[in-house]
Simulated assay, not measured.
Amino acid sequence: MTSWLEFSTAAPPLAARVRARFTAAESHVLATLRRDGSPRVSGSEIDFRGDEAYLGSMLDAVKARDLLRDNRFALHASPGIEEGGDAKIAGRAVEITDPEQVARLQEIHPSHLFRLELEEAVLTWVEGNTLLVESWHPGRWVRFARPDNGPAERTELG
């Protein structure tokens, strides 16, 4: 798993653009897994503190119960904002259980607080007639360009 700092160090321009998309709006779309394995989407907020990204939840909310059972998540930046591209991150949400750390980072008490460990970050945008996608996974950063809806051109960035 990768912290936000490690992602930002490995792919600085992509991390900056993804973070800008997530800070452009307050509420985003969080995907978690229900007990039966089917997906659940919920509104959620992301909070950047220092070199980490966090997700909070009201105590015992269904999204928190989902993450405590299976910590895999995907977070889609508010799809209502088109400027800056379409940003998504995915990985694992690790609950912070130290009461002092939770109190320092979270204003709502009692609550759940999760540190986001990334396995993927994706930014999609359009320039002229070209669809562009930058995809990052630990150790691999790639850009795909699809000019005029033609075949994708792949470029390794890191």
Rank of each mutant, 00 (worst) to 15 (best):
A121C: 05
A74G: 15
N149L: 14
P138A: 08
S111L: 11
R146Y: 07
G91W: 02
G84F: 05
V94A: 14
V94K: 11
P79H: 03
V29D: 02
S111Q: 11
A145N: 11
V122R: 13
L105E: 02
L67E: 00
E82L: 10
R69F: 14
V133A: 11
I81G: 09
D148Y: 08
R35A: 15
L105R: 02
G128L: 02
G128V: 04
R115E: 02
E45I: 12
R140I: 09
V102L: 13
G50P: 14
S38N: 13
S111F: 00
D98V: 02
A61C: 11
F144E: 08
A103F: 06
V41S: 05
A103Q: 06
I46C: 11
V126F: 09
N149A: 14
S44F: 14
R69H: 07
R72Q: 12
K63G: 01
G128Q: 08
K63S: 02
A31I: 01
Y54T: 00
A93Q: 01
G84T: 03
S42A: 13
E134S: 14
P110A: 13
G37N: 04
A53G: 08
L68I: 00
Q106H: 09
P147S: 04
V29G: 09
K63L: 03
D66Y: 00
S27R: 14
R146V: 13
R40D: 03
D36I: 10
S44Q: 15
S42T: 12
R35Q: 15
L33E: 10
D148K: 10
V29C: 13
E156R: 10
E45V: 10
S135R: 08
I81V: 15
N149R: 09
L116T: 01
R115I: 02
D51H: 08
H112Q: 06
D47E: 06
V142P: 05
V62G: 13
H28G: 10
R49C: 03
A77M: 00
E45L: 07
E52P: 03
